[in-house]
């Protein structure tokens, strides 16, 4: 088997990937539950939750797009989201929370970004590893400065300000529009040039280091906002506990970005799908399936997203 690059990418494979993913999910759920329960699993949608997951995944997905479209590998969205959520907890109101989360997460990814541009340290490794540091830092904050002392024996952070789901949706859509607009602008052109190699950017007369850093910083900032959105839209329990600092939405974001073809509008569509899958996952758990099965479903979407990306660019030849 060999992969041969297509001279013209075939977008149809994203549709194939999506349908295949859907087919996988349908088949798996049917096989696991049997007909009657399956109906409930697919249709029992909690709108509030669906929309809030959609908004968070969408913003995380856009964050991933920023990095992958420029050919840099931020895989630490989870860590940036933790920092963003932490900032949201520390903030007194929604506006401050959003601004602070973007700022803190940008600061958080600055280390991997600077290491990358100054010392050439692989950003995939550093962003991934800084996630673990983020978890420990968040735990420190939960235990000490941000601990909610009224919660008696609990070690729980104070609560983040509440954000209405529709506001989160608006922010997600705004972010999508913003990304599209940015990519149309000059800055966006250079960011996209980066995916063809640093030399191309240099050739265009710009600093590849600057744009590499910019791609990472933008990615981190959005991931931070995504983390803040996630924690602020919760209906109850807008706090962090020691054992659950991170939520896994960063990974969903990565899935959404690949399934959405690294295209901001594609990410919107993919996020809808992933939000639905998330609901399906919860429903599966409620009918007694092990938690792993539910996670595997969302994971399968990511695999199909990558398959779509590969088939979009390459032709498979069996020889």
């Amino acid at each position: 088997m060999r992969l041969i690059q297509r001279s013209k990418p075939a977008s149809v494979y994203y549709v194939v990937a999506f349908l295949s993913s859907l087919a996988t999910v349908l088949a798996a759920v049917y096989a696991l539950t049997g007909g009657a329960d399956a109906v409930r699993v697919f249709t029992n949608i909690n709108l509030q939750m669906f929309l809030r997951v959609f908004a968070a995944v969408c913003v995380m997905g856009l964050a991933s797009v920023f990095s992958y479209r420029s050919g840099v590998w931020n895989i630490g969205q989870e860590g940036q989201a933790v920092m963003g959520a932490l900032a949201a907890i520390a903030a007194p109101d929604v506006i401050t929370a959003l601004a602070l989360s973007a700022a803190v997460a940008t600061g958080w990814i600055a280390t991997p970004a600077l290491l990358r541009v100054w010392l050439g340290v692989n950003e995939a490794v550093t962003t991934f590893l800084t996630f673990f540091i983020a978890v420990y830092i968040a735990r420190y904050f939960v235990e000490n400065p941000l601990r909610d002392l009224t919660k008696k024996g609990f070690i729980v952070s104070v609560e983040a300000p509440f954000l209405e789901t529709y506001a989160a949706l608006a922010i997600a859509l705004l972010a999508a529009v913003g990304v599209v607009a940015l990519y149309r602008a000059r800055v966006g052109l250079y960011l996209r040039l980066l995916s063809s190699g640093e030399e191309v950017v240099k050739y265009a007369g710009k600093s590849p280091k600057l744009y590499t850093a910019l791609a990472l910083l933008l990615s981190g900032a959005l991931a931070g906002v995504g983390g803040a959105l996630e924690i602020m839209t919760r209906e109850a329990g807008r706090y962090m506990t020691l054992q659950q600092v991170n939520t896994g939405f960063g990974l969903f974001g990565i899935s959404a970005s690949w399934l959405g073809g690294l295209n901001p509008l594609g990410v919107l569509a993919a996020s809808l799908y992933i939000a639905w899958l998330y609901e399906v996952g919860i429903n599966l758990k409620t009918v007694g399936m092990p938690a792993l099965v539910a996670n595997a479903l969302v994971g399968s979407a990511m695999v199909w997203g990558l398959v779509g990306y590969v088939l979009y660019r390459y032709r498979v030849v069996w020889r």
């Binding site: 939750m49 054992q243 896994g248 409620t286």
Partner: peptide
């Protein structure tokens, strides 16, 4: 019945689903 691995931030939704 039971549900495993419930994220703490989503308790309310899970309870409602139950």
């Amino acid at each position: 019945k039971y549900v495993e691995s419930v994220p703490e931030g989503e308790t309310y939704t899970y309870v409602k689903k139950a």
